[in-house]
Deep mutational scan, measured.
Amino acid sequence: KELVLALYDYQEKSPREVTMKKGDILTLLNSTNKDWWKVEVNGRQGFVPAAYVKKL
């Protein structure tokens, strides 16, 4: 599985998104969309802005 690092805090704005804190390590589930990547964090799956994370 591929991991990404949260570069910034992000507060979810819809049920399809997830909240993350700067420094969190997230599991990358899908990065086919250039703007929104699907990740898993704390057992929850959802989208975060691709610009807010970096592949490890």
Rank of each mutant, 00 (worst) to 15 (best):
K1S: 11
K1E: 11
K1P: 15
E2F: 14
E2N: 12
L3C: 11
L3T: 10
L3Q: 11
V4T: 03
L5C: 09
L5D: 01
L5N: 02
A6H: 01
L7C: 07
L7A: 04
L7H: 03
Y8P: 00
Y8L: 11
D9E: 06
D9F: 05
D9H: 06
Y10F: 08
Q11T: 15
E12K: 14
E12V: 06
E12T: 08
K13R: 12
S14R: 10
S14P: 06
S14N: 13
S14L: 09
P15G: 10
R16I: 13
R16K: 12
E17G: 14
E17C: 08
V18E: 01
V18P: 01
V18M: 11
T19G: 09
M20C: 07
M20N: 00
K21T: 09
K21M: 09
K21Y: 13
K22E: 07
K22S: 08
K22Y: 05
G23T: 02
G23Q: 02
G23H: 05
G23D: 06
G23V: 01
D24N: 07
I25R: 06
I25M: 07
I25N: 03
I25K: 05
I25G: 01
L26W: 03
L26G: 11
T27E: 14
T27P: 15
T27M: 11
L29H: 06
N30P: 03
N30R: 07
S31P: 06
T32L: 10
T32M: 11
T32E: 14
N33I: 06
N33W: 08
K34C: 11
D35Q: 13
D35P: 03
W36H: 03
W37Y: 08
W37L: 05
K38P: 02
V39F: 01
E40R: 07
E40V: 08
V41M: 13
V41T: 13
N42F: 11
G43M: 06
G43Q: 06
G43N: 09
G43L: 06
G43A: 07
R44Y: 06
G46L: 05
G46S: 02
G46Y: 04
F47G: 01
V48Q: 00
V48M: 01
P49W: 03
P49G: 01
P49I: 02
P49K: 04
P49T: 01
A50Y: 02
A50I: 03
A50R: 09
A51Q: 13
A51I: 11
A51E: 09
Y52S: 10
K54S: 11
K55G: 06
K55H: 10
K55T: 09
K55F: 10
L56A: 05
L56H: 06
L56Q: 06
